[in-house]
Simulated scan of single mutants.
Amino acid sequence: MLNTVYKEAIKNRDATLSILRGPKFEQIVDRARQNWVEYKPKKQDCTMAGIDSSFNSTKFQGMELWVVTAVSIGTDGKIIFDDHKQGLGSDVSDLSSIASKMEIDACGKTVDLVDITLMDGSLYSQFMTRQSVLTHTILRIMEKRNNVVFVAKTSNTRMQFLDLESLAGDIFYYNHATKTPGFSKVHVDRKFGKDKAISSIYARLSDSTPLIKIEMLGDTHTEDEVKSLLDKLYKNSVGGYPYALKLAHKNCKISGADLGKLVSLYGISNEVGSREVLE
């Protein structure tokens, strides 16, 4: 069966990719090139911390064992803040909301201690899916020193090329437009209100490294400010990605193996599901 699937994928590869690119692919890529500001960052010293969270769960016998962790860590490897929650039950809460609350707590404990606080992910998720009390809290924290920046390795956002009927996310076209260091012109989105305006850029810190998406609160960020930020990120990056966020991810990730150890410590057994029986 899988061999048939593979053969069909090879046969239809070009047609499938043409759908992904869309009829105005070259036109969109050309605009992305025009929006790109070539800039080779220069190393600039600053103190920086990365914040990330993780959650995982496993089900058995109608119950669910879950774990949520969050951490704030500096580029020197020192933990600024960490927290975790775990539980066992049949009515498990929204783990992503718990993780978000813990990230906000970590951010609040970090902003006064470093020059730049890096949050893994997107500011949009804070405004779109979180409770109003959490939105108010993250706004208050971000406005305190204006040093909180959201960074993501991937993005599904489609805003900059919709007038050209783009089908893929904006990052897809910037990836095809250039491989040089630099950043896209600042794009401001005020759909959540002026007090929640989001300024975003796509950036590349070194030749041929992956793009990252950077989001900042406010609508007055200048290109000179972006260049200064990239200088600081470049000083503290590995493979084009901020080292502090790499450390944060490594220190908070809850893997399947970690859950397996917890299951063993609790002395419980995983439920054997239909898929395991088939395999």
Rank of each mutant, 00 (worst) to 15 (best):
V67N: 10
M159P: 02
K144E: 10
R145P: 04
V133Q: 15
R145T: 02
D120F: 08
R130C: 13
L65E: 00
S72G: 14
Q126G: 06
M63T: 02
K153V: 00
S155W: 01
V67K: 15
M159V: 02
D82F: 10
T157M: 12
A70G: 13
A70S: 15
K59E: 14
L113V: 09
I73S: 01
A152I: 00
L118Y: 03
Q61T: 07
K179G: 11
Y173P: 03
D105Q: 14
S125W: 09
I79H: 04
E165A: 10
R158D: 03
D91F: 08
D82Y: 12
H176G: 00
P181F: 09
D120E: 05
T137C: 10
K185E: 13
V92K: 04
K144I: 01
S57T: 06
I141Q: 13
F172H: 02
F81K: 13
A106D: 08
M63W: 13
M128V: 13
D76V: 06
D120K: 04
M128I: 13
T110C: 13
T117P: 10
T137L: 15
L123A: 04
T154N: 09
S166T: 00
L134R: 04
G182P: 00
S72D: 09
E165I: 00
Y173R: 05
I73K: 03
D170R: 04
I116W: 12
N175E: 11
V148Y: 07
V111Q: 08
K179E: 14
S132N: 15
L113H: 11
E143D: 08
I138Q: 05
K109M: 14
H136W: 11
G87A: 06
V151H: 01
H187K: 07
S54F: 11
T58Q: 13
V67T: 10
L162E: 07
T157W: 10
V151M: 05
D112F: 06
T154V: 10
L167R: 15
A70C: 10
A70W: 07
I80D: 08
V188Y: 02
N175V: 02
I73C: 10
S72A: 15
F81Q: 04
I141S: 06
L88Q: 01
K78M: 14
M159C: 11
K59A: 12
V148I: 07
V133W: 15
S132C: 07
F172Q: 00
R145S: 09
T110R: 07
S53P: 06
M159Q: 12
L164Y: 04
I171T: 03
T178V: 11
T135L: 10
M119I: 05
L118V: 01
R190E: 12
L88C: 07
N146M: 13
